[in-house]
Nucleic acid binder design. Structure first.
Length: 681
DNA sequence: GTAGAACAGTTTTTT
DNA sequence: ACTGTTCTAC
């Protein structure tokens, strides 16, 4: 008798995991607590589906980040090895984020709903830039009360679209201080929608909206739906209303749909994600089966005791208590420090001590609420030559010089892209927004650079003008040079402009060289641009390629960017009220609850060792002559009964003083286009 | 109209 | 500390 490969591998699973893996076609909700083997279960389920005869290319795996899909599919490949001849699941399964999958499907089928297949994608910053241009055009900037800044406008727009909520309600609920500008915002968003259509540009939200429209189309919809037999969605708690609707259009009865998530780890409501999706899944799909995974394979009982107590403070949640069969380990530590310097000192000492004991730096992570919380630690690590990688915060693509170079490439790809064009032209001396616009209008109208040949730019720009026109015409020609050559030519043109404009020119030019090398991996310009926009590299090193195995570095990460990861040792720093929860998110109870879940996500990354650091003294301003500081309070998420699960340690006599000074809070596509347009009327 | 300086207001998390 | 806005000199 042939012992099924699947049966053998299933032995490694616990009963509930196996139930989830072997579940049939009915809709399936897997509620997977932190560290309960979610990835293992998902990987086994995908392998199981393939073993049952579903072709890999008919499986869609939606994850929060592409790297998560890649990691999962690698494990599927591992499970299938020696199985029924499938070794390349990872190459054939559709995997990626909602946005990446939408882009791929829209390039394949978008023309059926009248979408030009060569659309370019605007990232968040591009959207803001366009909104800013339109705000000026519409004369919304002036008035007695200041109009919301571009970032806020982009935020409001995106939230309305993703939450599928009318502007008035959204303003009421989340942006009450902008209510008086409702009419201006409507006008702005209507114009924004129209302008994107003229420029053949889709923003992040459009990718989802147009995929939704594609699926709703009577002709194209069935075609797209028919591509897939199984759809699996990871991190379902962080999906929004639009994404949930999209999934329902993809699998109307829910058959073949598997969603996995943990409502206790929902941390993206600021991106319009809603826990309601996971909580209401059984109502949306009455045939759904729910499986709850509660055995943690990650964390020791001592650490679970603490994390369970932390999350128990949440007001609304699926009550579930995680347990662990691992041997009891060391209790978590709560370390009160005198100030940030001492915190840095203690964290580094502990990290090095553990490395001495054989724990690679890569198995250790320092987590924090906001990107700049690691600034001092980064400086000290740099000073001591301790290698680290930082995740989250200002990324490679956000650097001005990188945006400049990409603007060139986007303009070449799509001459109608006004945002890209304005950025490029403004690099030339003597050209500002006004002249850029005048030069761009005929190009936008024609979709080609020909009008520039006869254009007469201001005297200051005249010297460089012929070279720019030649560059644009040659590189935008269909038979243009290979991609790395294109990047190289742009770089040659741009380098002197970069030097004239910015500091740290050598470092910036090195980044661009890296970009040129990375370009060799892409077949064409459109793919390069889409990939960089949808899944931006998080550092220059990442652009250069994956770290080699003998590369060791300490992980520094925002809590958001650490989602889904685990580390042998986790150090959570700046656990002061005002940092966790963030001062900016303590307005409404739901916000505080999300901050609590965020803290829970941080704590639940640890396998064996967990320490929370709390610096008592908090500098409001950079320490200098009379540097101002106040005394912070421990995060409200560690009240005495929760703290009881921690070993408390005061790192200095001052921190131990019972009569510490009084704490001071530290401050306080045409139908779709039309529908989108009508949203704002 | 552009560019740079001076000033004012705000300050998170990310596809 | 940084971003965005306003003012002023070209």
């Amino acid at each position: 008798m042939r012992l099924s490969w699947a049966a053998v591998r299933l032995d490694a699973l616990d009963e509930r995991q196996r139930e989830a893996v072997e579940h049939g076609d009915e809709p399936l909700l897997i509620v997977a607590g932190a560290g309960t083997g979610k990835t293992t279960t998902l990987a086994h389920r995908v392998a199981h589906l393939i073993e049952r005869g579903i072709r890999p290319e008919r499986i869609l795996l939606v994850t929060f980040a592409r790297r998560a899909a890649a990691e999962l599919l690698r494990r599927v490949d591992g499970l299938l090895r020696g199985g029924p001849g499938e070794r390349t699941a990872s190459a054939r399964v559709w995997g990626g984020t909602f946005h990446a999958v939408a882009t791929r499907l829209l390039r394949l089928h978008g023309e059926q709903i009248g979408l030009h297949p060569s659309f370019t994608i605007h990232d968040r910053a591009d959207s803001e830039d366009l909104l800013d241009v339109l705000r000026a055009e519409l004369d919304l900037g002036r008035g007695d009360r200041r109009f919301p800044r571009k970032a806020t406008c982009a935020d409001i727009y995106s939230r309305c679209v993703n939450a599928r909520e009318p502007l008035a309600e959204m303003l009421d609920r989340a942006f009450p201080w902008c209510k008086e500008h409702a009419d201006g915002l409507k006008l702005l968003f209507r114009t924004y929608t129209d302008r994107k259509a003229e420029q053949r540009v889709l923003d992040f939200d459009d990718l989802l909206v147009f995929l939704d429209g594609l699926l709703a189309d009577p002709a194209a919809g069935p075609l797209v739906r028919g591509r897939f037999d199984a759809v699996l969605v990871d991190e379902y708690q962080d999906t929004n209303a639009l994404q949930a609707d999209l999934l329902e259009r993809l699998r109307p009865s829910g058959r073949g749909l598997t969603v996995v998530g943990d409502d206790a780890q929902a941390i993206y409501s600021f991106r319009a994600a809603t826990v309601r999706n996971i909580l209401d899944f059984p109502q949306r799909y009455p045939a759904a089966r729910s499986v709850v995974l509660t055995q943690s394979f990650r964390t020791t009982p001592a650490l679970l005791e603490a994390t369970n107590r932390v999350i128990a403070q949440a007001r609304e949640r699926h009550a579930k208590e995680l347990w662990s069969a691992r041997p009891d380990g060391e209790r978590p530590e709560l370390v009160t420090c005198r100030d940030e310097e001492q915190q840095t000192e203690l964290v580094i000492a502990r990290v090095l001590e553990r490395r001495e004991q054989g724990m690679d730096l890569r198995r250790q992570a320092v987590l924090f609420r906001t990107s700049h919380h690691s600034a001092q630690l980064e400086i000290e690590l740099g000073r001591r030559g301790i290698p680290f990688r930082k995740y989250g915060g200002l990324r490679f693509l956000e650097a001005a010089h990188v945006r400049d170079l990409l603007a060139f490439l986007r303009l070449l790809e799509n001459p109608r892209d006004l945002v890209a064009g304005t950025r490029v032209l403004s690099l030339l001396p003597g050209i500002g927004p006004r002249i850029a616009r005048a030069l761009l209008d005929p190009v936008v109208a024609q979709g080609a650079f020909a009008p520039w040949r006869a254009a007469r730019p201001p005297a200051a720009a005249a010297a460089r003008w012929p070279a720019l026109v030649e560059l644009c015409e040659e590189l935008s020609a269909p038979s243009g040079p290979a991609l790395p050559v294109q990047v190289h030519r742009v770089r040659d043109f741009y380098a002197p402009l970069c030097e004239a404009r910015y500091d740290h020119v050598e470092a910036r030019l090195r980044d661009l060289e890296q970009l040129e090398q990375a370009a060799a991996a892409f077949t064409d310009r459109a793919t390069l641009l889409a990939e960089l926009t949808l899944e931006p590299p998080r550092s220059t090193q990442e652009l250069a390629g994956p770290p080699s195995l003998d590369d060791d570095y300490l992980v520094l990460s925002t809590i958001h960017s650490a989602k889904g990861l685990e580390f042998d040792a986790t150090y959570v720093i700046h656990a002061a009220d005002g940092n966790i929860p963030s001062d900016l998110s303590t307005g409404r109870p739901e916000e505080i609850d999300e901050e609590l879940r965020l803290f829970y996500v941080a704590l639940s990354r640890a396998r064996d060792h967990l320490a929370v650091y709390f610096p008592l003294r908090w500098y409001d301003r950079p320490a200098g002559v009379g540097g101002r500081h106040s005394y912070a309070q421990l995060t409200r998420f560690l009240p005495p009964d929760v703290r009881a699960a921690f070993d408390e340690r005061a790192a200095s006599p001052e921190a131990a003083r019972a009569d510490a000074p009084p704490a001071v809070e530290s401050g306080a596509s045409a139908a779709i286009r039309k529908r989108m347009h009508d949203l704002w009327s």
